[in-house]
């Protein structure tokens, strides 16, 4: 069983899809925290910094491991570790950009955790349904 790795166009499509989906999920979540237009702008910019980098690192790690049924399962903890790094990075970026105009540091940390929890869970679901060859996983067992 072989899987063709993504050519460049697919990588771009993956990055664009991931960024658009993440923003579509994280902006309404951030709005619930009442950070205002400047806060939402900072969320967009923080995602420009973290999201494509997260996806590039994740894709490279998955391909370094070798994409098959076992490493797909093994990639989930990798994604969790990277997601934790993203939460911390976005929190510090938001604190840096908004200072006290966006609320307290703890509020921005709670916002970063909630945003990434929502986008991480829904993103994993979307990737599993649309991008991952589930048939391969089931065939393996």
């Amino acid at each position: 069983m072989t899987i063709a790795p993504p050519p460049l166009a697919n990588l771009f499509a993956l990055f664009a899809f991931a960024l658009a989906t993440t923003l579509a999920l994280e902006l309404p979540t951030a709005a619930l925290f009442g950070v205002g237009k400047r806060g939402l702008g900072a969320v967009v910019l923080a995602n420009l910094v973290t999201n494509p980098l997260f996806n590039l690192v994740f894709v490279l790690i998955v391909f370094l491991l070798g994409l098959n049924a076992w490493t797909y399962l093994a990639s989930l903890p990798v994604a969790v570790v990277l997601e934790i790094a993203v939460v911390i990075a976005e929190w510090r970026l938001l604190v840096w950009a908004l200072r006290t105009t966006g609320g307290s540091s703890m509020k921005l940390l709670a916002m970063s955790v909630t945003m990434n929890l929502v986008s991480g869970l829904v993103g994993t679901l979307l990737v599993t349904v649309f991008f991952t060859p589930l048939a391969l996983v089931f065939r393996f067992f």
Binding site: F12, F15, L45, A46, L48, P52, A97
Partner: peptide
């Protein structure tokens, strides 16, 4: 792909730096 990611990374940081100044 790395160049694209690095460009977006730099643009995001520049925007955030501008926002930090206005804050």
């Amino acid at each position: 792909a790395s160049i694209l990611v690095a460009t977006l990374f730099a643009l995001g940081l520049l925007g955030l730096a501008h926002m930090a100044r206005t804050s």
